[in-house]
Each structure stands twice: as structure tokens, then as C-alpha cells.
Design a protein around this nucleic acid. Structure first.
Lengths: 105, 105
DNA sequence: ATTCAGGTATGACTTGCATCGTACCTACAG
DNA sequence: CTGTAGGTACGATGCAAGTCATACCTGAAT
């Protein structure tokens, strides 16, 4: 399974998919946490400590990846996830700031 | 049924509800059309000619209204819907521009 | 008053989605 | 080699959401 699998190109990122992905509170939390860290930060899926099962975490990261919000790269044992900051800013300027500004519950 | 029913105040508009509302293509089309018209424009629900039944149109406008995207006022026979432009811009700057820039299918 | 058009309310149906358990795969550590 | 930890794949399940038909309400026009 190559690393580029399931990653849309910048021009292929669709607003509908992005908004659908961001409609879920857990996925929004992931984006918010990544947006708060320095650019290029890559974290493992499990480091977010989402209150759901492993299978569900995989599901959510698939949605985020296929929507174009995060990029996932295999690094040894695990897959590091990073925010596609510049791609998103170029396509939907201001969107990340809105999500990042949301207060956590 | 007073006119203010189901309209959240500016500070009560939640990002989750807004994104959920905007996740649907039909509701996004409504917002896009309203955003393209001059500020304060009010249109009837049926003037959008959505390709769904009357009951479904009512449903979609309820979601938009309760999320805080649209304000609906009874005017005689019908209910005029207008975009809550300044409220949204104050709370989620740039969001309307993103939706308005989406190309129609 | 009758009719009609714009909307709403309700109930039903169907699809999609978030969730889980289980099984499996892949590296890395002993 | 044998764990073990991080992820994925595959069903299955339960609930939310989009859709509709029908019935109803309201105001305006004939």
C-alpha cells in the first residue's frame, strides 16, 4: 500500500467532503489539535487518545485523509498524520482558522 | 408561532451545527445563492426550486434556521428567508466566502 | 365561500454513518 | 522466534438523516 493512496491532489479537494469530514466533533478535534502545533507536525493516530475503539479511529482518519485534510505517511511501524495546511489554506482560505478557534467541550 | 422561534442568537451559533448544515449540497446551494445576492435579500423557500418535495424543503430550511445560517420571517402568506451575513461573518470570518466560491455542479 | 399556493406537521421508509468486536498484518523488541 | 503495539479489514449493529406522501393550516385572489 503506497503512501499516496487515498490522498486527493490539491485541486481535487472538494468542499463537500471537507465539510462532511469537519461535521464530526472527533475529527474536528484532530484538526484543531494539529492546527495548534507548528506546521509540519506529524503524530500517530493513537496519540490523540480519542475516546473510541481502534477501528473507529482508523475510520475517522480515513475520512480525514480522503477529504484531503490530513496526510498520512507510513513511518516504520505506525502512520504519521500531518495537517495539509498550505493546501487547505490555498483552497479554502480561513477555514482552518475557524476550526482552530473552536473551544473544546 | 412567533418569528423568532428557532433562531439562535449570534453568540449561540455553534460551529458543529453550522458545518453539519453546510455538509448537505442542497443546503449549501441555498446559502450560495443567497450569498450571491445583495445583503438583506429575502426569498421564499420555493423560489430556490430545489429538486425535492415541499416537505423536504421545509426540513432543509429548518436545519439552516436552527443552525443560525438563515433568518426566516413570516410575510403574509409565505416565509421569507434571508442570510444572516453579518452574524456569520462576525462569528466565522471567511466561511461564507468559501461556500459562495464553490462551483455549482 | 371556494379555491389555490406557500409552508408546516406527522409518520414511514431508506440510506448513510459512527461505533464496535474480531481477526489480521506489519514492524520492532526481547 | 515470540510477543507486543500500532493500524487495517471486515462484518454487524444501532441511530441519525434525507426523503416522501399525506393531511393540515394560513393568507390571498377569484
Amino acid at each position: 500500500m503506497p503512501d499516496d493512496e487515498g490522498h486527493p491532489a490539491v485541486g481535487e479537494i472538494e468542499l463537500g467532503s471537507v465539510l462532511t469530514a469537519l461535521a464530526d466533533p472527533l475529527r474536528r478535534r484532530v484538526v484543531r489539535v494539529l492546527a495548534a502545533e507548528p506546521d509540519g507536525t506529524a503524530r500517530t493516530c493513537s496519540s490523540f487518545a480519542l475516546p473510541v475503539s481502534k477501528a473507529t479511529v482508523t475510520h475517522h482518519f480515513r475520512i480525514l485523509r480522503e477529504a484531503g485534510l490530513v496526510r498520512q505517511v507510513s513511518r516504520g511501524n505506525s502512520r504519521m498524520a500531518s495537517l495539509r495546511r498550505t493546501d487547505l489554506e490555498r483552497r479554502f482560505p480561513g477555514l482552518l482558522a475557524i476550526v482552530a478557534a473552536e473551544p473544546e467541550e
